[in-house]
Simulated assay, not measured.
Amino acid sequence: MLLSQLEKIVANLPYGEGFKFVDQLLELNEDQVIGIYRFRESEYFYKHHFIHQPVTPGVILQECMAQIGLACLGSYLMRDSKEQLQFVFTEAHVNFLEKVVPGTTVIVSAKKEYFRFDKLKVVVQMLDENETKVAEGWLCGMILTAPKQKSDS
């Protein structure tokens, strides 16, 4: 089965299944990305974060925005690189406007403000499936490169 370029970017993110907060990319180009993630009721953090009325931690919402807005867009911008990419989250200013409860699907959109010297800054927002704005702000990250490992094939 051939994966589309968008599916390959999601599949190649450097996060394990328990910490990957990207289900699908809907749009991706040189200037912006739109992606979605559904916060499943079985997520590990709901068991301990507001025990009787679980809420998605803000740091997890921010991570979701960073994975879509920085890691996915950065991967696309560096798609011709011959090196292994690593992503380092460097700076953020996010306003949280609404809570996200288990079972909520979020839509993250990020617009590139700049990308130079391997540093990416995006203006980002998160909506829920009812198009209510959950969070907005900006994020910065650095793309680190290392030579790709040769395979033994």
Rank of each mutant, 00 (worst) to 15 (best):
I51S: 07
V88K: 09
L61I: 15
R38C: 14
E129V: 06
R79F: 09
Q53H: 15
I36A: 04
A66W: 14
K133S: 09
N12K: 14
C72Y: 01
H49I: 10
V10F: 00
V106W: 12
Q5H: 08
L70R: 07
L73V: 13
G141A: 06
H48N: 04
T105W: 04
V123S: 09
F117E: 12
P54Q: 02
Q84K: 14
R38I: 10
S81H: 00
Q67G: 11
L13R: 05
V106Y: 08
Y76I: 13
L120S: 03
Y76K: 12
A146I: 05
P14Y: 01
G58Q: 09
L127E: 02
V94E: 00
V100L: 13
M126P: 05
H52C: 08
P14E: 00
Q62A: 15
M65H: 02
M78N: 15
V59W: 11
K133C: 14
K121A: 11
V122R: 07
G141K: 12
K82W: 02
G58S: 11
P54I: 08
I9T: 11
K150W: 08
L13D: 02
V101L: 14
V22Y: 00
S151M: 07
L2C: 02
T104N: 01
S42G: 01
C72D: 01
R40F: 02
S153C: 06
Y44L: 14
E17H: 11
A92E: 07
M126N: 03
I34N: 06
I9K: 15
Y15L: 04
G137D: 06
A92F: 10
K8H: 12
S153N: 11
L139K: 13
G69P: 10
K111V: 15
L139P: 08
G58N: 12
K8L: 15
D128S: 02
A146M: 13
I34Q: 13
Q53N: 15
H48M: 05
H49R: 09
H52T: 14
F96Y: 12
D152Q: 13
F45W: 12
F89W: 06
Y46M: 05
G18Q: 13
Y46A: 07
T145C: 13
G16N: 11
P102T: 00
Y37C: 00
L3D: 05
L70E: 09
L13K: 04
S42Q: 08
V22W: 00
K133I: 10
V55I: 15
L61Q: 14
K150P: 10
V22Q: 00
Q62Y: 03
H48G: 14
K99R: 08
A11H: 06
W138I: 01
L77D: 07
C72T: 03
H93S: 14
I34H: 10
L25E: 00
G74N: 03
H48E: 03
A110Y: 03
S4A: 05
K112Y: 12
Q32P: 01
L73P: 00
I143R: 01
V22K: 00
N95V: 08
H49V: 10
T90P: 08
R40P: 01
S109V: 05
G58D: 08
E113G: 03
V55S: 07
D152V: 10
V59H: 03
P102W: 01
V59S: 11
V134M: 09
K121H: 11
L70F: 04
E113W: 06
C72P: 03
K112D: 09
E43L: 15
E43P: 07
S153R: 09
C72V: 09
D23T: 04
Y44P: 02
F96C: 04
N29I: 02
L13F: 04
E41W: 04
M65G: 06
T132I: 14
Y37D: 00
